[in-house]
Design a protein around this nucleic acid. Structure first.
Lengths: 237, 237
DNA sequence: CGGGAGGTTGAGCATGTTCAAAGGATGTGG
DNA sequence: CCACATCCTTTGAACATGCTCAACCTCCCG
């Protein structure tokens, strides 16, 4: 019945074209949503005209689990490609928390994973050189796409321009370009159209000092299910 | 009765000396805790010997609200000064979620604030120059100390070495030193012992492009209380 | 008074930026 | 289906920001 609750939430669906703002900094979001298809970014524009991309949203990602707790958005969300999203109202969300603790535990879990990714990006920006940052991002994106079944071997669709990569990694587009060329010459990656293939994944992971365990793909510890089942029993009394 | 619940949690207390690891990367945390006094950091060591400081923990901060959802820690936590902490067991935590939804809402809220700070650090590391980063961090720390009543005008105790500042900002200690000197020469700050005074706060905020609203000090929107009260009623049925 | 950690200084160097221009690719309207 | 416009990628060269290394200084604390 919990899956039924989830299905109900994602029944309705909205579409947006590519390169369009879904939510703007300063606005008051009225609903949460799940990204069903396509790719989007969280970002912030800075007064000097530059921008920083904070996270990529790929299918299955929730945006934002708790955003309605904040008065206003402190960043914007924009599409990179045409997307399909399932909006979830504030009320449905509250209903979910009250009546379906196991579902809310799963959502909670995913927000933890996102937090882990934010920490990882901080480490990247603070302490990895440009090659390491690019390599890390490519690995991270491959693993995330893998986790939701959107890979084909070691390749997946990456609809990003080099400018967007630069805005994510704190690098200029020109330098990103040079690093990607270098990776290609070394046979680490192949890119055509927007299909990226990480030929030499382990080589990239070494450059990146990448460790997939930081992304916590293993899922939550087993015993948690027991806790949340207990929670459910209490509430249903 | 909710405050009673909180008091109960923080009744027990542990002490640690300065410059000691409280929780290490890779370990399985058995309890959550609240920092009562002193200062601590979340950080990660990298294979090349460098480290990245991810967040500062100051009195009132919770660490980590949800950490027990993760199998293992993806970073370590260390004290900077001697600290007092109140440990909270996994069971008390679960109990809190079940019986005191308004308290858990408050905790939830604080984890959101932390997430906002992580995003802000990403923007800093990705798109601000060295002066901007230093200025931003000083402003952020002042505001956070203000929020918990640990300031005296525009000054507060900052027990950080320049190396630690560098490890936070992705800069070398030498460069941090030069920037701080510059700020002093320009009359922006005064530092003696470990007392920092942001003489020209608005000047710093301009250099930093600092906007305190990103830290979401305003608190959660009013109507949220209603939601969580409703939640409580349902559970108490 | 001595030891150690942290702060300060200078000089050379490296990584990555900026600017400008040219070369693809993609998509749209005629 | 071509022509054109636009956006993206690529290239080179000069430049800047911040790093490294090494030495020295200063303060604190025992």
């Amino acid at each position: 019945m919990d899956t039924a609750a989830l299905d109900l939430l994602t029944a309705r669906e909205e579409r947006f074209p590519g390169h369009v703002d879904i939510i703007c900094e300063g606005s008051v979001p009225r609903s949460v949503f799940v990204l069903i298809e396509g790719m989007a970014i969280r970002y912030r524009d800075l007064p000097d005209g530059s921008r920083q991309i904070i996270t990529f949203l790929i299918p299955g990602d929730m945006c934002d689990l708790h955003v309605f707790l904040l008065k206003t958005m402190d960043h914007s969300i924009a599409t990179l490609t045409p997307v399909r999203i399932a909006p979830v109202s504030r009320d449905s969300m509250m209903d979910l928390f009250i009546h379906h603790p196991r579902v809310s535990a799963a959502l909670w879990w995913s927000s933890l994973q996102e937090e882990a990714m934010l920490r990882e990006r901080i480490v990247s920006l603070g302490r990895r050189d440009a090659r390491g940052r690019v390599a890390y991002l490519l690995c991270e994106l491959l693993w995330r796409h893998m986790a939701v079944g959107l890979t084909n071997g070691r390749s997946f669709t990456l609809p990003l321009t080099q400018t967007e990569l630069g805005d994510t990694l704190g690098l200029s587009a020109v330098h990103v370009n040079r690093i990607l060329q270098d990776f290609r010459k070394q046979g680490l990656i192949v890119m055509e159209r927007h299909k990226l293939n990480l030929i030499d994944l382990s080589g990239l992971q070494i450059i990146a000092d990448f460790n997939e365990s930081y992304l916590h793909f293993g899922g939550a510890p087993e015993e948690l299910a027991d806790y949340f089942d207990g929670l459910e029993r209490v509430r249903q009394k």
